[in-house]
Structures are given as structure tokens and as C-alpha cells.
Write a protein that binds this DNA or RNA. Structure first.
Lengths: 87, 87
DNA sequence: TAAAAATACTCCATAGGTATTTTAT
DNA sequence: ATAAAATACCTATGGAGTATTTTTA
């Protein structure tokens, strides 16, 4: 599990379009497709219902979306906490 | 940020010895050294005080240790939640 | 001087891009 | 027929191991 995948998924969940989400993530459509596949393999569940034009999250996808938001917030909090820490 | 790094760091924090922690993680000492370095670079802070024989966590390291435990628990919870989700 | 960690070097695996194919509307 | 995602193919980057060097107690 990587934070990178969370960011990818978050953008994809918002855009509901691989090609445009890939642009926003500054990678190719094929790279995003593979990253999401990696993520789904890692979790052992489909996260996205691929209907070109009307992309939907699966139940697992909706669960993961919550998780993503939580993880990204915590990561940000961690970095702030660390930058406020005396070395 | 990767969960892999969290696992590495957790083991290293317990063992306080790169070589033995690397064994436990089933990678070479040099690989673990590089992974921890990557992690420190990613966070922009030293996490470990390297005194061979008496390895210590820095203040940032102690902050990160808490974060690691939280992340690993949440990841486990996520996977359980997903496996209980109807596809 | 002995241990432990970092580094140099090489190699391989994986991630990426481009081009193409497949799929669904 | 068109738009969008998946796949094939090739390349390049990064991560791994072994061997070596550096460091400090």
C-alpha cells in the first residue's frame, strides 16, 4: 500500500475518467490504469466499476475512499508534527 | 510513503540493529539501510540516531513510531472491512 | 580492532510511455 | 463509430544483493 495509490484513487474517484485523472496526476492513461489495477490486486477487490463514460465506485471502492481521505490527512498531520519537532 | 517502510521502521525500532532487523524483514542490511534513508528523505527528518551498538530514535522517530502503529492498524482494519464488503 | 552501518557496483525487476487493441455505448 | 480503458511492447529507472569501505566504541 502506497500513499501514491491513495492520491491516484482520490483523483480518479473525483474525475470518474481514467484519461483526465491521469493528466491531473501527470502520468499516462495506461500508467494510471496499471496503478489502479495494482491497488485492486493488493486489496484483493475491485474498487471501480468500469463503464466507459459512467465510471462508478464499487462498495469496496467507497470503503477505500474513506480510508484514503483519512490516510492523506494523517500523513499531512505527521509531516506537520515532524516539522515542529526539534531534531 | 509506503506501508513497507512503516513495517521496516517498526522492526528496526524494536531490534535497534540494522543487520538483525534486515534479517527479520528478509532483506539485506544494505537494502534496509537504503529503505530507511528513503523514508528519512521522504519525511525530511532523521528518524534514527546511528550509534552502532546503541541505536536510538530521534524525537521525529518517536513521532513516526506512533504514526506507524496507527497506519498498520488502519490498513488491517481496511482489509477486514473490504473482505466483509459485498462486491 | 571489531561491530555495525553506509556506499559502490552491478544486475534485474518493475514502472513508465507510446502505440494498439478491445470494449461498451 | 467513437470514446475510453486495457494490453503489448520496449525502455529506463529504481531497488536488490554482494563486496567493500567507513565509522565509532
Amino acid at each position: 500500500m502506497q500513499l501514491l495509490w491513495c492520491k491516484d484513487f482520490l483523483v480518479l474517484a473525483q474525475m470518474r475518467n481514467f484519461s483526465r485523472a491521469a493528466d491531473q496526476r501527470c502520468i499516462s492513461q495506461s500508467a494510471l490504469s496499471r496503478r489502479i489495477k495494482q491497488l485492486e490486486d493488493d486489496l484483493g477487490a475491485r474498487l471501480i466499476d468500469r463503464q466507459p463514460g459512467s465510471l462508478q465506485l464499487t462498495p469496496a471502492g467507497r470503503v477505500f475512499l474513506q480510508h484514503c481521505e483519512q490516510m492523506l490527512k494523517q500523513d499531512q498531520a505527521l509531516r506537520e508534527q515532524i516539522s515542529n519537532t526539534i531534531q
